[in-house]
């Protein structure tokens, strides 16, 4: 029988596997902190999908054509599916879905800050697809290379669907930006409100990002917040300009030397204010989730009662069948 490895030997072997680009799978040895960080990230991601159903879901009933209505229901359904898939990925690390959801409902778990902003006009649905899903794809494309196998594979699947979300948003806003005066105003108003929050989606500046160093060493995160944010800005600015929209940043300029679009200062005070629970919609989002949970209690009780009764009936019929 081989001698027990020490923790340090195991850690060295684990980090060597990550350095070689191997995927870590559910049964494999992993440091407690790796497991903890992954559960934190994956559950936050799952919660973001669940809470993220609310701002767009509110517009399903107002969608102005059969096609838009169909697309929007499908999109919000995808988000529910992503949430379910990600909770399963967290379960593969030993977490319980109910515990994670309880933490969300208790206000103890984070989700993407962007969903604490309100959707005020129909064009917000398109702008969320274009900017918010566009930013999410940047982050999630990076995560397809993450070292934990189930998370990485979930991201491959989710990115494929997010690409459709991004395309429908871009298509909608491009159409409206060249549409009637009313539609053009809607599109510009949506951009004015979603531009800065979407840049904040990449998280605080690298200097203030507390978790980043370990996450990068363990291959959970492969690029820094600022690097991803810059990639997004460089891609999205020319697209928005081409659509004929005006980006609400007087300091925005193209830097010939670096080849980057440089924005004015991001209001990080607002970011921290919203993340601490004082954004425009924080309370409303949690209220909606809690209401759904509370209203569903009698349903879940009925499901459980019926399931246990059915299994009793099943056993009885087996017994009588043996007679």
């Amino acid at each position: 029988m081989p001698p027990e490895l020490t923790h340090d030997e195991r850690l060295t072997a684990f980090e060597a596997r990550i350095a070689r680009g191997e995927k870590i799978e559910p049964g494999d040895w992993m440091p407690d902190d790796y497991r903890r960080q992954l559960i934190r990230m994956i559950s936050q991601h799952a919660h973001s999908e669940i809470v993220g159903m609310l701002p767009e879901g509110a517009w399903i009933e107002h969608a102005p054509s059969l096609r838009r209505k169909l697309i929007l229901i499908a999109k919000v359904q995808d988000e529910a599916g992503h949430g379910q898939y990600l909770y399963h990925a967290a379960e593969s690390l030993g977490a319980e879905r109910q515990d994670l959801i309880d933490a969300l409902l208790a206000g103890k778990a984070k989700y993407s800050n962007i969903f604490n902003y309100p959707t005020l006009n129909w064009a917000d649905v398109g702008m969320i697809g274009w900017l918010v899903d566009g930013a999410a794809i940047k982050n999630q494309t990076m995560l397809t290379g993450a070292s934990y196998g189930p998370y990485s594979r979930a991201m491959v699947r989710i990115c494929a669907e997010e690409t459709f979300h991004y395309k429908q948003g871009k298509e909608m806003i491009t159409l409206y930006a060249q549409g009637t005066p009313h539609q053009r105003r809607m599109a510009q108003d949506a951009l004015d409100r979603w531009w800065w929050p979407s840049l904040m989606m990449f998280g605080p500046p690298d200097a203030d990002s507390t978790n980043s160093t370990t996450l990068m060493r363990w291959g959970i995160k492969l690029k820094s917040n600022d690097a991803l944010r810059q990639e997004f800005i460089d891609e999205i600015v020319p697209e928005l300009h081409a659509a004929g929209l005006c980006i609400p940043d007087p300091d925005l300029r193209y830097d010939e030397n670096s080849g980057h679009w440089l924005t004015g200062p991001i209001d990080w005070d607002e970011f921290w204010r919203v993340i601490k629970g004082n954004g425009p919609m924080n309370r409303e989002r949690l209220r909606a989730r809690r209401t759904a949970h509370d209203d569903g209690l009698w349903v879940r009780e009925a499901m459980a009662a019926y399931a246990s009764r059915s299994s009793v009936i099943g056993k009885r019929s087996t017994v009588s069948g043996q007679r």
Partner: peptide, 11 residues
């Protein structure tokens, strides 16, 4: 959508 009693039923 977003308000069902269990996530599977949202879907």
């Amino acid at each position: 959508t977003g308000h069902a009693p269990i996530l599977e039923e949202d879907i």
